[in-house]
Amino acid sequence: MTLFLYLTAALIYAQCTVGILLNGFIVATNFKNWRQLKILQPCDKILSCLATSRCLILFCMMSFNIIFVFFHQLFVNPVFISSAWVFTMLLSHTNFWFATILCVFYCVKITNYSHTFFIFLKTRISSLVHWSILASLVISVACSLPYGWFANDGAQYGFISGPAENTTFGKVMITRETHTRLIMFIVGSVPPFLIFCVAITLLIHSLWVHIRHMRGGGTGFRSPNLEVHFGAVKSMSLFLVLHVVYFVCMSVRQSPTNGGSWRIVFSVIACIPPLLHSLYIIVSTRKLKEELLKWICCQ
């Protein structure tokens, strides 16, 4: 079991390190462009917020798993547990909301729906980005603070391991606190997740309808415009799959039936979606890819 913990900790450390470097590169590139042009596009602002959130959450995953392996006794400290739960859930909620804002932004900018609400959003989406980011931060803080109280109570009965787990009362209290945390996580995470799914479904549907119209209008299958739309569909589909995987992993990790070994396994899987999506963003975005190649060549 000890060897398993060390191996998974090393894997999580490697995943998180690569993810932090990729997301840090996105933030650094956007910051460089902002300093040069004195302006940043709304999409780049959302990407910078999402990348920053991912950097922090990957750093927390890496730090907490290292602490779990080497400094396990800290997990029975009420102050540490309260702070860890609040900060981790704050980053998790902001990650969900920033991903949702990015998807809604793409949906509004790319789709051609004639509904009044879509037209209203399309004309004001740039000015709404700042308010959306601020609102997501406020909501994330409000959804994360309650974790401090329940985590503090759970630590009194041996949050991860301790004498209380050997008693019926201790097991009941730990299970009750875990159920409470799972409910809080669902309440805080399901709304942005549902908005994300609806927005990305509308976006994929609109792109496929546009592709069929282009085919029916005699536009060649190999036309550049059609390939761009196919690329957008694949990009959004990948974003949806990775977001669903991340949401499921985070939900299962909160489950009271999730044991210690499985919790670590799902921690490993939870690191994969933000890493892969950030890599895909860099590869599929011309200015990010050119900046990365320039940086690699200079080395």
Rank of each mutant, 00 (worst) to 15 (best):
R181M: 13
L182V: 02
I183V: 12
I183K: 08
I183L: 05
M184E: 06
F185V: 03
F185C: 04
I186E: 01
V187P: 02
V187I: 14
G188V: 04
S189I: 00
S189V: 01
S189L: 01
S189F: 00
V190R: 00
V190W: 00
V190S: 00
P192D: 07
F193Q: 02
F196S: 04
F196N: 11
C197S: 11
C197R: 01
V198F: 15
V198G: 04
A199V: 13
A199M: 09
A199G: 12
A199H: 12
I200S: 03
T201N: 09
L202H: 11
L202A: 05
L203R: 02
I204N: 07
I204A: 01
H205V: 15
S206Q: 08
L207V: 08
L207A: 04
W208E: 13
W208Y: 14
W208S: 10
W208D: 11
V209W: 11
V209D: 15
H210G: 03
I211V: 09
I211S: 09
R212A: 03
H213Q: 10
H213M: 11
H213A: 09
R215V: 06
G216A: 13
G217I: 07
G218M: 12
G218Y: 12
T219G: 00
T219Y: 06
G220Q: 04
F221T: 06
F221N: 10
R222T: 12
R222C: 10
R222M: 11
N225T: 09
N225M: 09
N225I: 09
N225K: 07
L226C: 03
E227M: 14
E227L: 14
H229I: 00
F230T: 04
F230K: 15
F230C: 10
F230I: 13
G231V: 07
G231D: 08
G231R: 11
A232P: 00
A232W: 03
V233M: 13
K234M: 10
S235H: 09
M236R: 04
S237M: 13
S237W: 05
S237T: 15
S237A: 14
L238K: 06
L240N: 09
L240Q: 08
V241Y: 11
V241F: 15
L242K: 04
L242N: 10
L242I: 03
H243I: 04
H243N: 15
V244Q: 00
Y246H: 15
Y246S: 15
Y246M: 09
Y246L: 13
Y246W: 13
F247V: 05
F247R: 01
V248F: 15
V248G: 05
C249G: 14
C249Q: 12
M250N: 15
M250D: 10
M250R: 14
M250I: 10
S251L: 11
S251W: 08
V252D: 11
Q254P: 03
Q254G: 10
Q254L: 14
Q254H: 12
S255C: 11
P256I: 08
